[in-house]
Amino acid sequence: MAFFTQDTNVRKLSLSNPVHFLALGFGSGLATKAPGTFGTLAAIPLYLVLNQFSLSVYLIVTLIVSIVGIYICDKASKDMGVHDHGAIVWDEVAGLLITMIAAPAGWIWLLIGFALFRFFDIIKPWPIKWLDSKVSGGFGIMIDDVVAGVFALICLQMIYAFT
């Protein structure tokens, strides 16, 4: 069993293309199993770097990641000829960064944030599932993970507030 996908649609993308490289979450989206989880894991080093800066810098970069993600995901999706292919994981990168906005310091909080984001991204409670099925293009690829990130952010902050 190969670790990297052999999907013919993914072969239409190139890691040497900066847009494809980002859409594939620095290559993490090529995992054959759970590419969304690997994409979320790939976001952790970015989070750790951004977390060293002020909250305003963190928010600006997260906003840029999310807005530019609309183009990145749309372009990769069109280049593949498949809407929201599992290998496109830039939306997971944005989702984790949103989840971790103003998160408490410490690995336990990163682990909780990671688990909460993956929970909402996989389970897709309303309106996430509705957005996932009804909104198309790059915005559609991004918006369900943005909302999952917001849900996870709220839960993470509530857990912290009540501990």
Rank of each mutant, 00 (worst) to 15 (best):
N17Q: 06
N17K: 00
N17W: 07
P18I: 03
P18G: 04
V19M: 06
V19Y: 02
H20M: 02
H20F: 05
H20T: 09
F21Q: 03
F21N: 05
L22K: 02
L22N: 02
L22P: 02
A23I: 03
A23Q: 04
L24V: 07
G25V: 01
G25F: 01
F26N: 03
F26P: 03
F26M: 06
F26T: 03
S28I: 01
S28T: 11
S28N: 04
S28E: 01
G29C: 03
L30W: 08
A31R: 00
T32A: 10
P35L: 00
P35Y: 02
G36K: 00
T37W: 06
T37R: 00
T37S: 07
F38L: 04
F38W: 13
G39L: 00
T40F: 00
T40K: 01
T40S: 10
L41G: 10
A42R: 01
A42E: 07
A43S: 13
I44Q: 01
L46P: 15
L46A: 11
Y47K: 01
L48A: 14
V49T: 13
L50H: 12
L50G: 08
N51E: 14
N51P: 13
S54H: 12
S54P: 13
S54Y: 11
S54N: 13
S54Q: 11
L55M: 11
L55C: 12
V57R: 07
V57S: 12
Y58I: 07
Y58P: 08
L59F: 08
I60Y: 12
V61E: 04
T62K: 08
T62W: 02
T62Q: 09
I64M: 08
I64Q: 01
I64D: 06
